[in-house]
């Protein structure tokens, strides 16, 4: 079918023509987030996939004002944008959000993020978590889950991939007693939009993390991005919850919990776990999911 007569892109906040890989989970996350915030925002992004595929000069899909400074300072830059808006008297009308990956959030940008939280800036920080440094070619980050094979946590010899558990960044955010922390997934757009809207209704620092599969880094067919995101939630590996001032508010319950193997076996980054005869590592990962289910009461 041909293009519709009305130009659908005229007001679009995240236009096509960007250079994300086919099936990119982060791209879905960005569009859904902006649908929830509306156009009266200034977006700050750290260096990363999102920055790279949206800013090869002079091409950009952004239909909202967007600023990229460096890798490790998005939260500080956003603090400055927000301070400037306050001084201009337009902070009621225009809001600041950060959209960045797990590398720029969990690792190199954590100091700046903590500063932004404790100073209380009115900024929504959205982390699209694809669980490794994808832009540089799939190296592990502190968001990389247990057992994941990446280029710097290879599964070879005695090594079984990433051998440390993920950093719990939402918990670190909660420890700052900020007014809103939530986890979401690209598999549940309505839930994600609602959480972003909820965050935008609150003044002060907010943190929303969006689990965003990456076909290249995880090793699966691009068409399965949403399915894998859903499996991550339904196995309990990615709990979806909301918290305020350090206290849990509500969780998204899992209707029918699946074993983690249902999620793991569909990704190349976990294939080595299935070659192991005794499956000990699969048991370790299952216990991560079980732990999440218990801690967040994801069932029932």
């Amino acid at each position: 079918m041909d293009k519709p007569a009305v130009d659908p892109y005229q007001k679009m906040m995240f236009a096509p023509g960007h250079r994300a890989c086919p099936g990119c989970g982060a791209s879905i996350a960005v569009r859904l987030v902006l649908e929830a915030t509306g156009p009266d925002v200034i977006v700050v992004s750290p260096t990363g996939c999102l920055e790279t595929f949206t800013s090869p000069y002079p091409y950009t899909p952004w239909g909202v004002p967007w600023l990229h400074v460096l890798f490790e300072n998005a939260a500080a830059v956003a603090s400055g944008v927000e301070a400037a808006l306050r001084s201009r008297g337009s902070s009621d009308r225009v809001r600041v959000i950060v959209i960045g990956g797990d590398g720029g959030t969990y690792d190199i940008g954590l100091g700046a993020l903590s500063g932004m939280f404790e100073r209380g800036h009115d900024v929504l920080y959205v982390c699209y978590n694809n669980e490794a440094y994808m832009n540089t070619g799939v190296q592990r980050s502190s968001a990389t889950p247990l057992g994941t094979a990446t280029m710097t946590s290879p599964a070879t010899g005695q090594a079984w991939g990433e051998d440390r558990p993920q950093k719990d960044l939402p918990a670190i955010a909660m420890a700052h007693q900020i007014p809103y922390v939530a986890t979401a997934s690209v598999a549940f757009p309505a839930d994600l939009r609602r959480k972003v809207k909820q965050a935008m209704a609150i003044r002060g620092p907010k943190y929303v993390e969006v689990h965003s599969p990456c076909p290249i880094g995880w090793g699966y067919d691009a068409a399965e991005t949403v399915e894998l995101a859903r499996l991550a939630v339904n196995t309990g590996l990615v709990p979806l919850y909301e918290a305020a001032a350090g206290q849990q508010l509500r969780v998204r319950k899992i209707q029918q919990r699946l074993p983690v193997t249902e999620y793991l076996r569909r990704q190349r980054r976990f294939h080595h776990l299935f070659a192991d005869a005794n499956g000990a590592h699969l048991v370790s990962i299952q216990s991560v999911a079980d732990g999440n289910v218990n801690r967040w009461a994801l069932e029932g």
Partner: peptide, 17 residues
Amino acid sequence: ADSEFSAASVVAGASAT
């Protein structure tokens, strides 16, 4: 700011605004 790096980053963001 939480560091000189952040201080410079804050004024970068503000200046761009």
